[in-house]
Design a protein around this nucleic acid. Sequence first.
DNA 1: GACCAGGCACATC
DNA 2: GATGTGCATGGT
Length: 226
Amino acid sequence: MRRTLLSIYRLLESHFGPTHWWPGDTPFEIATGAILTQNTAWTSVERAIANLKDAGLLDPHAILACEDETLHRALRPSGYFRVKTKRLRSFCRHLCDRYDGDMARMTRRPLAELRPELLGIAGIGPETADDILLYACDKPVFVVDAYTRRLLSRHGLCSPNIDYESLRALFESRLNADVAMFREYHGLIVYTGKDFCRSQPRCDACPLRKLLRSGAPVAAKGKAPS
DNA sequence: GACCAGGCACATC
DNA sequence: GATGTGCATGGT
């Protein structure tokens, strides 16, 4: 499986990459995008982030200071604007209370302490936390998302019902803890998930299918479907 | 008009 | 512990 996951990365990189995929210009923008992208297409998130920029609200103190209605208007294009207003504010409140609103100060915390801390914030679940940790805080965690699960399960490498932590542990145990590689790998999965596999779900020409047919070992299965 | 998109919290059993 | 439900908009 170590060989398989690394082979998949190399194959995707040589076929599609490098993507230079990057979910924002600043660490705070990346964290904001991670919250807004929950169950939402990225194109919708981009519109909401542009609204925040235009309103001078891409700043944790400004977000805490403004009216609910102002945030609702800005976040409306990304959907779930009422819950996302609460979630973005709860993250900003934590960031301001604990780090004076400074993402760089938060980043100095060790991963083993920062991950549970983020997971303790209302509205930050495992995927959102890991997105922030990898792309905004330079921590070597592998971000698992719907695309990752779909890609691996479609090629028979895990159960479609594998839980988040098991799939994350699978990647992190079989790959070197390399921040740049984890970022690029996730970016490639997002790229292929959006633009390739969805449009050609059973394409026999799929390079991954060819690779996996060539006899690469198969991963342990996750939780069995109930 | 139906379905899907890079989740999460909460209620209920 | 597992399962169901609400949250909302925009693209296809």
